[in-house]
Amino acid sequence: MNRMMRRLLVALPAAWLVLFFGLPFALILQVSLSRAVIGQPPFTPLFAGGAFQGGLGNFALLLEDDLYLEAILASLGLAAGATGACILLGYPMAWAIAGAPRRWRAPLLALVALPFVTSFLIRVYAWIGLLRPTGSLSVLLQSLGLIDGPLALMPGTFAVAIGMTYTYLPFMVLPIYASLEKIDPTLASAAADLGARPGRIFWSVTLPLSAPGVLAGSLFVFVPAVGEFVVPELLGGPGTPMIGKVIWQEFFNNRDWPLAAALAVVLLVLLAGPIALAQRSQAPTARGLG
């Protein structure tokens, strides 16, 4: 391929990303250093009259008010909880699919991925109807006589955890399945031949060899869950100030763009490590999805 064509091939997507990815992130950094004003745009310029006008005031504000620190901790905690729940629920599913007869595996995997075809928003919406005190779950359990009063799961942290587990479960099942499927089945036979019982085979052979899949799945769940906005907004209510929600409120309700930008920078720094790790485990998963 000649040099001109190669350049053109790279230049188009690169130019797009500079404009709609590079520039935006440079601007987030810039705005996080400026102050909020009433006007359009609602922040001060970084340079005025040839002098640097920026400062770390927004970041100082984040440290002063406990609300922000709590939101960050709550987000990390909830994301970790949802990740754990996804492992507990997703690992057995992936294991069951990997152990199913060959002709069943593709349809079962498709069933795991299929909820993605329906709107994410709609699936979260469904849980409102199921979880709220007058919701179907509560009504069902009451009519069965299992509980006396209405079941108040929503709004609250628990509902958010369920909602996130629900929406991110396929992200966990697919990479774990991909790693389980790669394990040579003769390894388990060899372990059995050497005297290992099924439980021992699982702990000593299957689980360690599928650990990369668990790690990849955990990152794919954890990273987006930390910054999740829709689920806590719809299922969480005012008691669960997750960081994604706080950024949204600062931006839309308080119109404090610089503070929202500063929060976004903090979130970015927090997630930089996990994101970098997740990138390394992306390619095999894409193949699993294809």
């Binding site: 935006p24 992130f25 930390v226 999740e228 976004a264 979130l267 970015l268 994101i275």
Partner: peptide
């Protein structure tokens, strides 16, 4: 890769600023 994994709230805010 970053576009793929970043929380939407950050991407949305960044794009709006741009």
């Amino acid at each position: 890769g970053a576009v793929l994994t970043l929380p939407e709230v950050i991407l949305g805010l960044a794009l709006l600023l741009a």
